[in-house]
Simulated assay, not measured.
Amino acid sequence: MRGGHPEQHEVGGGWGELRTGARPTAGPGYGTAPGLPLAAPQGVSLDLPQGGPGGRSGPRIPPQREDVRAGGPRQTYLDAFDEDDDVFAPGTGGVRAAGPPAASAFPDAGAGRGGPVFPETGLPAKGRGGGRGRTFAGIAAAAVTTVLAVVVAGQVTDGRAEKTVRAQAAGAGGRDARDSASRGDRRPTPTGTPSVAPLTYEQKMAERYALGEEFTGSGKFDAVLGFDKAPGKGRKYTYRVDVEQGLGLDAELFAEAVQKTLNDDRSWAHDGARTFERISSGEPDFVITLASPGTTADWCAKSGLDTTEDNVSCDSAATDRVMINAYRWAQGSETYGDRIHSYRQMLINHEVGHRLGYGHVTCGKDGDLAPVMQQQTKFLDHDGIHCKANPWQYPGS
């Protein structure tokens, strides 16, 4: 007895082929050798069917419960697939002609245990076809069914998750969160960063810039490279523009402002009398210098001028420098308020006017425009007369 029920070898190979040269031993539970009468196990009656198609080649032995400890499938599981067939009964294939058993496909199978076993598993070899085939086919089908059930369940879960994502996306912005493009195929896709139009000269000149009123720079200057040809035919003056290092101001803007202001017809170039040309090499007639308040004061002191009291600019006549106070250039003055562009024009014209030989004057009548050579950074009103801010030498032109 093995596994809680008898085993039986049949000619049809229900329990596999016997080892070559080994003969089945007659006795209860194992059948008889070919040519010998069958012996029924004790308590089992043999009902031998007639030979022919569909008949069985051995006795029908009632199925018995499989011992769980023997390693076989549970009887309740087997019954779910085939209640009529014993899983471990002999094969139910067609009748095989009587004759000596074929050589075993597994020569190492033990002959004394009633039949060959699989070398890998130690389980008896199964017959081809019959109830066992259907049983194990059913087991395989059950495994496939289980896998399909898991797959379907996963797809259902994914479907629900997908609907949840779509619903959340619709609630947030009305778009499918999975849609990476989130735009129609016909809509153009922006490339790069949006371009911002650069500020114009007038816009830059209308802005204030940060710079401390007590700031003292390095005292070192850089010439603004480039060349601006004198536009007129009058007396030509050449100049260079220097900017102190570390100011953080737009040196190109300052140089452009100097050239445009000096050659404006309302300025010293009025009526073709003079023309101004910017150079960055060679010997200029003067150097217009944008410097910090501290550096401006140092250079103005070389000409005996004190610019610290009102933090103003100067023409340092003892040197070649016309000093423009960077704090005033960046922040303007109270007298001009928000008219920062006009104030910068006045600042250039006033200090270059000193270089050209003009001194300070004031307006003589209440309500008149202040002359460009008036100290408009310090005041517009004097002696009860109110003067209007004015950046030009010839404002009516």
Rank of each mutant, 00 (worst) to 15 (best):
R240F: 06
R240V: 14
R240I: 15
V241R: 12
V241A: 12
D242R: 07
Q245I: 06
Q245R: 15
Q245S: 14
L247E: 07
G248H: 06
G248Y: 05
L249T: 02
D250I: 08
D250T: 09
A251I: 05
L253H: 07
F254C: 03
A255C: 05
A255D: 09
A255E: 04
E256N: 13
V258Y: 01
V258W: 02
V258R: 03
K260Y: 07
K260S: 07
T261M: 00
L262Q: 03
D264F: 04
D264R: 05
S267Q: 12
W268I: 08
W268G: 03
H270E: 11
H270L: 06
G272K: 15
G272A: 14
R274F: 09
R274A: 15
T275E: 10
F276R: 03
R278L: 02
R278M: 09
S280I: 07
S281L: 05
S281Q: 11
P284N: 12
P284R: 12
D285T: 02
D285F: 06
F286V: 10
L290R: 07
A291F: 07
S292H: 13
G294Q: 08
T295Q: 10
T295P: 01
W299V: 10
C300S: 11
A301Y: 05
G304Y: 14
G304C: 11
L305W: 00
D306Q: 01
D306N: 13
D306W: 03
D306V: 06
T308D: 01
E309I: 09
E309Q: 13
D310Q: 12
N311R: 15
S313W: 09
S313M: 08
S313C: 07
D315V: 01
A318Q: 13
